[in-house]
């Protein structure tokens, strides 16, 4: 009896232990080592003294604010547009109509497709000699590739944002769709009988229901884009680069003395990301209660 009691007591810790063990060892371990290196502690190359110099170097770099702005702008607009489009499509797809099944399936297609493939497709589509430019040239709207707007390797990062839109709209959309379907039409019916208009029903009935889903998914999407390296590297301008590209390029440099700076850049990136997300969540909570 005593033994059974013990097993009962240990049940939850035992269930959690494997996940906690792996994630703590790998994630927290990596974070601590990275933090150490950013503070100039890297005994393997003879750096033994803690210093804030690398943070000062990064923060006083003329290009830092520019890079931060590029990183933020891409993540912000990708997230904002994805969310708006996702909600719009979810509102349409929640109803059953001819072709709704096909549309729902098509809507899901980008979800499993890797970002690299999406990026490759966007490049072939929207470069100055891409498929859209060829289409316009065929119908006589375009004479040479240089008449087509610059959408890849551009300062605004249009191709990067398009790639993320293509990937993230279905992700957010499906979460919103799931919530909408679980709610059912009852609330709206009730609101309608009480005389609420279309817009009012959306804003005061549906919005509070789907807001937690929107907040969560947009946090995931923003955090992912804010820290991702491959797409801005492949489709972005060489200067100014995003912070993850800056960090990773420094990390890959054969000069190991650039490592602490790479780590400092990514720690700063992490801190900014967390601050933004906490603020956003606060704001969203405030909006729900208000």
């Amino acid at each position: 009896m005593q033994r059974l009691h013990l097993i009962e007591k240990l049940r939850v810790p035992l269930m959690l232990a494997p996940s906690l063990l792996i994630l703590t060892l790998l994630f927290v371990g990596g974070l601590v080592v990275g933090l150490g290196q950013s503070l100039g502690y890297m005994p393997v190359i003879g750096l033994n003294n803690f210093t804030l110099r690398h943070y000062v170097d990064v923060l006083t770099d003329n290009n830092f604010l520019q890079s931060l702005w590029v990183t933020f702008r891409i993540a912000f607009f990708s997230t904002l547009f994805s969310t708006v489009l996702a909600v719009a499509f979810a509102l349409i797809l929640r109803e059953t109509f001819v072709g709704s099944q096909l549309s729902t399936f098509m809507f899901q297609v980008p979800l499993p497709i890797p970002h690299l493939v999406a990026a490759n497709g966007i490049v072939l589509l929207v470069t100055q000699s891409g498929l859209i430019a060829r289409l316009l040239a065929t119908v006589g709207l375009l004479n040479s590739p240089s008449d087509f707007p610059v959408l890849v390797f551009d300062r605004a990062g249009i191709a990067i944002i398009l790639t993320y839109l293509w990937k993230e709209v279905p992700f957010i959309g499906l979460v919103v769709l799931a919530v909408l379907k679980s709610v059912g039409p009852e609330f709206e019916e009730l609101a309608r009988t009480l005389g609420a208009g279309r817009w009012q029903r959306f804003w005061f009935v549906l919005m509070p229901l789907i807001l937690p889903g929107i907040v969560s998914t947009s946090i995931i999407v923003f955090a992912f884009i804010f820290a991702s390296y491959e797409i801005p590297l492949l489709l972005g301008v060489r200067f100014p680069t995003t912070l993850p590209v800056w960090a990773f390029n420094n990390y890959r440099d054969p000069d190991l003395n650039l490592r602490p700076e790479a780590m400092a850049v990514s720690i700063i990136l992490t801190v900014i990301s967390i601050i933004l997300l906490v603020a956003y969540r606060r704001l969203a909570r405030y909006a729900v209660t208000a």
């Binding site: 054969p254 000069d255 190991l256 650039l258």
Partner: peptide, 16 residues
């Protein structure tokens, strides 16, 4: 490793 953190500003300078 005789590397000391002197060469931080110099890219591609050998550290080891």
């Amino acid at each position: 490793v005789a590397g000391t953190p002197v060469q931080v500003e110099v890219t591609r300078e050998v550290s080891v």
